[in-house]
């Protein structure tokens, strides 16, 4: 069992309509694929975030299906076009069913 996820979202809080807004997110997570062996040569149990989603006012902007090749403490940088003010919801989905969410507002002028 991993510790609770701590996640960080870095993005501007304001933007001009039509601008590309770059968003960087990182979550603390071991991302154990189940293929790795520990010092005693035992397989380390699988423990993964398998999905990351981004919504803006209920509209799905990004949906990442995460495989074993993504590094621990997964980092993603992406961009959206600022259309109107609203709220982002970022969600990290763990294979054990837990979902960690963060929200952030963007004011568009």
């Amino acid at each position: 069992m991993s510790r609770p996820i701590r996640a960080r979202v870095r993005m501007p809080s304001t933007a001009t309509r039509g601008d590309e807004v770059t968003i960087r997110v990182m979550a603390t997570h071991p991302m154990e694929s189940g293929n790795r062996r520990d010092m005693a040569d035992n397989l380390v149990p699988r423990d993964m975030i398998h999905r990351f989603t981004v919504d803006f006012d209920g509209e799905r902007l990004l949906d990442i299906d995460i495989g074993a090749g993504v590094s621990s403490n997964p980092f993603f940088e992406f961009a959206v076009v600022a259309a109107h003010s609203g709220a982002f919801t970022f969600a990290w989905h763990e294979e054990n069913g837990a979902i960690h969410t963060e929200t952030a507002r963007l004011s568009v002028s």
Partner: peptide
């Protein structure tokens, strides 16, 4: 060359810019 070869799949909604940066292990 990875034991689990698929690193990720990403779908972009209409409001997203079709690019992604991440960190991977090989």
């Amino acid at each position: 060359g990875n034991p689990g070869p698929r690193v990720l799949t990403v779908r972009f909604g209409p409001g997203a810019v079709p690019r992604l940066t991440t960190r991977i292990r090989l």
